[in-house]
Design a protein around this nucleic acid. Structure first.
Length: 275
DNA sequence: CACTCTCCCTGAAAGC
DNA sequence: TGCTTTCAGGGAGAGT
């Protein structure tokens, strides 16, 4: 899916909907990852958008009736904003029609995304939100926090980075890029990381995620910003999808780790205990 | 509790 | 060319 940078780029594109009023709600499927709530139409219709933000990879749209719409994009979801002429396309599952003839469309071919709605003040009682770890871009994310979370863990660091309940926002692509940037093996166990490595890792997380946002995210296959433009950070990938490329004559390898692809450069990302 | 494995779904790309 | 297989930015839930 869209990882943090793609979600952030998406919500920036949604800001144009602020203060606009929803005049019609269309739901074209019964279920995405979960059943679509029945109350959606009643709670959304005739409401104004007062705030658009994100919590980790969850897009939050606050309404003036004290409810919040929650959208998760899953692997292939994307939000489109269209003005004036909306023509339905395949996999357009959910459409909000606004005044001034704006449309917001959720398109998700794989249906791994979901839609939910809740009282704004009860957002954090949703367990998929309350369990989230510190946001990858938060100031509160520091080496001390991370060290405490990982120093007894026997899990591979790549897997730890993907655990949204420790740090939220990092997905499979950026995990590989971040570990390369920090020159840490994806197979290093949490408990074997030195405090120096942890510091480097935190620095790399913020650096890579921030840079990806400035490039509008990465567009490999499905992702597009809400205005339809593609992101360009994929041009900055050092290891992801670069299995035929070399770095200083060192090979980049693709392997499967916990069922997900991992790209890394073994020569530049050695484990502490090997050799 | 902590970790691994399987599954949800469709389509693009690779393999044959 | 065309059919088949594999793989994909996520994450929950079952099983061990």
């Amino acid at each position: 899916m869209p990882e943090l940078p793609e979600v952030e780029t998406t919500i920036r594109g949604l800001y144009i909907l602020k203060n606009k009023k929803i005049i019609k709600v269309s739901v074209n499927t019964k279920k995405l990852r979960y059943l679509i709530p029945n109350s959606l139409n009643n709670l959304l219709k005739n409401q104004n958008i007062i705030k658009i933000h994100r919590i980790a990879k969850y897009i939050i749209i606050d309404l003036n009736n004290n409810n919040s719409l929650i959208i998760h994009l899953g692997m292939s979801g994307r939000l489109k904003i269209i003005k004036d002429n909306y023509l339905k396309q395949k996999h357009d599952h959910f459409i909000l029609h606004f005044d001034q003839n704006y449309f917001m469309i959720l398109n998700d071919s794989r249906k791994f995304g979901f839609i939910d709605i809740t009282k704004t003040k009860e957002l954090f009682s949703k367990k998929y939100i309350s369990n989230l770890g510190i946001d990858a871009l938060s100031r509160k994310l520091n080496a001390k926090y991370f060290y405490k979370k990982v120093n007894k863990s026997n899990v591979d660091i790549k897997q730890i980075l993907l655990n949204q309940n420790i740090i939220s926002g990092i997905g499979n692509i950026y995990a590989s890029e971040i570990l390369f940037d920090a020159r840490i093996s994806p197979f290093e166990k949490g408990c074997n990381l030195t405090i120096i490595q942890i510091g480097n890792l935190i620095t790399s997380i913020k650096k890579i995620i921030r840079k990806a946002i400035t490039f509008g995210g990465s567009s490999i296959r499905d992702y597009r910003a809400s205005d339809g433009t593609i992101g360009n950070f994929q041009l900055n990938f050092k290891v992801y999808g670069k299995v035929k490329k070399k770095i200083n004559n060192y090979r980049i390898i693709k392997t499967i780790q916990h069922g997900r692809s991992t790209y890394y450069c073994p020569e530049l990302q050695k484990e502490q205990n090997s050799n």
